[in-house]
Amino acid sequence: MSASHRLARPALFALALGLSSAAIAQTPPPPAPPAAGRPAEPRRLAVTGEGQAFRAPDLALVQLTVMRQGETAQKALADNSAAMSAVQGALPEFGLEARDVQTSGFTIAPQYRYDTASDGTQAPPTLVGYEVRNTITLRVRAVDRLGEILDRAVSLGVNDGGSIEFVAEDPSALQNEARRTAVERARASAEAMAGAAGLRLGALLSIEDGASGIEPPRPVSEMRMMAAPASPKVPVAAGETMASATVRVVFALEN
């Protein structure tokens, strides 16, 4: 056998061995087996519930105004102060304390007369006096006596527009009642939906408080109080204060 033949055989063997190793190196590894024991995502049901709560208001916010006019600012102010002092002096008879009475408006304004000359031209305005308005805001807790308070206030000198707004003194209690109703309705809806799907309602996973608020009865707008004989009792209807709440609740679902 020639020397060239003796050298060729080992070279061919080495080449074959190299190709085999490359083929083994390029073969992709088998996929990893799935992880054992991984819990499946629980089935969930999200629902929204709305609730309302109603209660008779236990607080009235009342605005009363005394208006007086005089030839001078001092005269108008003196007359106004005398009338307002009489009004405030009578308030303790109805259970109102100093903390329940607040001055919420006070103005002194000149009053002018505008004359037109015979030729149609406008004459300069003439100062004829002054007008003083003093407004107080009352927090009346004895809502059932509000008519008596208005009657007495008019008889003592209140003679200009005012307003009444009925509210809940502790709105949080009414708001929480509305939230409880909203949660109960959300659970009832979830149970009905789960039952229709052939499933059972599981654990409560989350709960979120949504939109909520207090809606008082509409204010009695702009009462016109004129200096007229007082009635035995001014009729007042308080109505109801309403609280509303919305909740979003998520439950787990079970077979």
Results as ranks from 00 to 15, higher is better:
residue 157 G to M: 07
residue 255 N to H: 13
residue 152 R to C: 04
residue 152 R to W: 02
residue 172 S to E: 15
residue 242 M to N: 03
residue 130 Y to V: 10
residue 251 F to T: 09
residue 72 T to E: 06
residue 184 E to A: 15
residue 158 V to H: 01
residue 174 L to A: 01
residue 193 M to W: 08
residue 167 V to G: 00
residue 215 E to S: 09
residue 115 D to C: 03
residue 168 A to G: 10
residue 105 G to W: 08
residue 135 T to K: 08
residue 233 K to I: 08
residue 20 S to E: 05
residue 137 T to K: 08
residue 193 M to H: 07
residue 92 P to Q: 07
residue 229 P to Q: 02
residue 80 N to I: 06
residue 73 A to G: 14
residue 92 P to E: 09
residue 61 L to I: 14
residue 109 A to M: 13
residue 19 L to W: 10
residue 237 A to D: 13
residue 165 E to I: 00
residue 151 D to P: 00
residue 46 A to R: 14
residue 79 D to V: 03
residue 158 V to F: 05
residue 98 A to S: 14
residue 29 P to D: 08
residue 26 Q to R: 13
residue 251 F to R: 01
residue 181 T to R: 15
residue 146 L to M: 08
residue 192 A to T: 12
residue 66 V to M: 03
residue 209 D to S: 12
residue 140 V to G: 09
residue 54 F to E: 06
residue 14 A to M: 11
residue 95 G to E: 03
residue 131 E to W: 00
residue 232 P to Q: 05
residue 206 S to W: 04
residue 170 D to M: 09
residue 218 R to Q: 15
residue 231 S to C: 02
residue 204 L to Y: 09
residue 156 L to W: 03
residue 225 M to P: 00
residue 186 A to E: 07
residue 210 G to I: 02
residue 243 A to L: 00
residue 221 S to F: 10
residue 86 A to C: 03
residue 50 E to K: 10
residue 180 R to I: 11
residue 75 K to H: 05
residue 80 N to D: 10
residue 11 A to P: 02
residue 9 R to T: 11
residue 174 L to P: 04
residue 234 V to S: 01
residue 186 A to V: 13
residue 182 A to T: 11
residue 2 S to L: 10
residue 175 Q to N: 01
residue 5 H to Q: 13
residue 6 R to C: 07
residue 199 L to G: 04
residue 135 T to H: 01
residue 218 R to M: 12
residue 252 A to T: 12
residue 7 L to A: 14
residue 99 R to I: 01
residue 232 P to C: 05
residue 242 M to G: 00
residue 14 A to R: 07
residue 55 R to W: 10
residue 17 L to H: 00
residue 143 V to S: 04
residue 223 M to S: 06
residue 130 Y to A: 08
residue 87 V to H: 12
residue 54 F to M: 12
residue 52 Q to Y: 13
residue 49 G to M: 11
residue 63 Q to G: 06
residue 241 T to V: 15
residue 139 R to S: 15
residue 53 A to I: 07
residue 153 A to D: 04
residue 94 F to C: 01
residue 168 A to I: 10
residue 227 A to R: 15
residue 118 S to N: 08
residue 28 P to T: 06
residue 141 R to E: 13
residue 139 R to K: 14
residue 225 M to N: 10
residue 151 D to I: 02
residue 88 Q to K: 13
residue 47 V to H: 09
residue 104 S to M: 07
residue 117 A to P: 03
residue 146 L to H: 07
residue 6 R to V: 12
residue 239 G to E: 02
residue 62 V to M: 04
residue 17 L to T: 11
residue 228 A to C: 09
residue 188 A to P: 01
residue 22 A to G: 11
residue 112 Y to A: 01
residue 127 L to G: 06
residue 167 V to L: 03
residue 123 A to Q: 14
residue 107 T to S: 13
residue 215 E to T: 13
residue 213 G to E: 05
residue 62 V to F: 04
residue 90 A to L: 02
residue 174 L to W: 07
residue 219 P to H: 09
residue 41 E to W: 02
residue 52 Q to M: 11
residue 247 V to T: 12
residue 226 M to Q: 14
residue 237 A to V: 15
residue 239 G to M: 01
residue 12 L to Q: 11
residue 41 E to D: 12
residue 158 V to S: 01
residue 8 A to I: 07
residue 21 S to Q: 07
residue 235 P to W: 06
residue 105 G to Y: 08
residue 100 D to W: 05
residue 228 A to R: 15
residue 158 V to M: 02
residue 95 G to F: 00
residue 200 R to E: 13
residue 153 A to P: 05
residue 210 G to W: 06
residue 247 V to I: 12
residue 165 E to G: 03
residue 190 A to R: 01
